[in-house]
């Protein structure tokens, strides 16, 4: 599905380079569920941002669905992630001024989906996540777990091939966290590729492969036999 070859990313501080990603190579196959672990500042979020094309890198090659991300233009890149990637954040990042329904609908608006189709899609997903009754509430009226549920629903509405989740359970209690992870597992079984960054060993175990990062480099990789 995607392939990173010798990715470097650095920032300059006082004339010296501080590496955020240091010679990182990674290949992800379709249908995988990857957990990225590592201490704070090890580059987990940076890696996810690079994979999600939200952030640039300084050196290396990145192929996403055979497309060379490092050479294509900004606009094509935006299309690529718009079509294929859904994001889930630790802080949910719902738009406060929009209701649950409208938040979930927003990505469809940016993809210029027709109104009737939008309605059907949003209704489906509300149904699936059991939040039909909450559709007219604003984010501030929901609990953290419910907000994250909406966040995931919003990420899934465009039927992405890849979900990038940056500490999706970081702001949740353990029970809520578990529910979200179960949901991810379910989605993964349906064929969605998932890459999550996490601090929690337990959550990491949901993945089919765990990658450990330290100072921007991969230190070890553990695969589970499925």
């Amino acid at each position: 599905m995607l392939e990173l070859n010798h990715i470097y990313k650095w920032v300059k501080a006082g004339g010296r380079r501080i590496f955020l990603l240091n010679d990182l190579s990674l290949k992800v196959e379709s249908g995988e569920f990857i957990s990225i672990m590592g201490p704070s500042g090890s580059g987990k979020s940076t890696l996810l941002n690079v994979i999600g094309m939200l952030d640039d890198f300084n050196e290396g090659e990145y192929y996403f669905l055979e497309e060379p991300v490092h050479t294509i233009k900004e606009k094509q890149r935006a299309n690529l992630y718009k079509e294929n990637i859904g994001f889930v954040f630790q802080a949910y990042h719902l738009i406060d001024e929009l209701t649950v329904y409208e938040n979930i609908e927003t990505p469809l608006l940016y993809k210029n989906v027709k109104s009737s189709e939008r309605k059907a899609l949003v209704a489906d997903i509300l149904d699936r996540f059991n939040i039909v009754g909450k559709k007219d509430l604003f984010p501030a009226q929901l609990s953290g777990g419910q907000q994250q549920l909406v966040g995931i629903a919003r990420a899934l509405i465009t039927k992405p091939k890849l979900i990038l989740a940056d500490e999706p359970t970081g702001n949740l209690n353990s029970k809520q966290g578990e529910e979200i992870m179960e949901l991810f597992k379910e989605l993964n079984e349906e064929g969605v590729t998932i890459i999550q960054a996490t601090h929690s060993e337990n959550n990491a175990e949901y993945g089919s492969r765990i990658i450990h990062l330290l100072d921007g480099s991969m230190v070890r990789e553990k695969s589970e036999t499925i």
Binding site: L54, A78, Y81, F87, I95, D96, Y110
Partner: peptide, 13 residues
Amino acid sequence: LREIGMRKTLGAG
């Protein structure tokens, strides 16, 4: 800012 960032990740040009 958060809204802007979010909209961008959701595909807003």
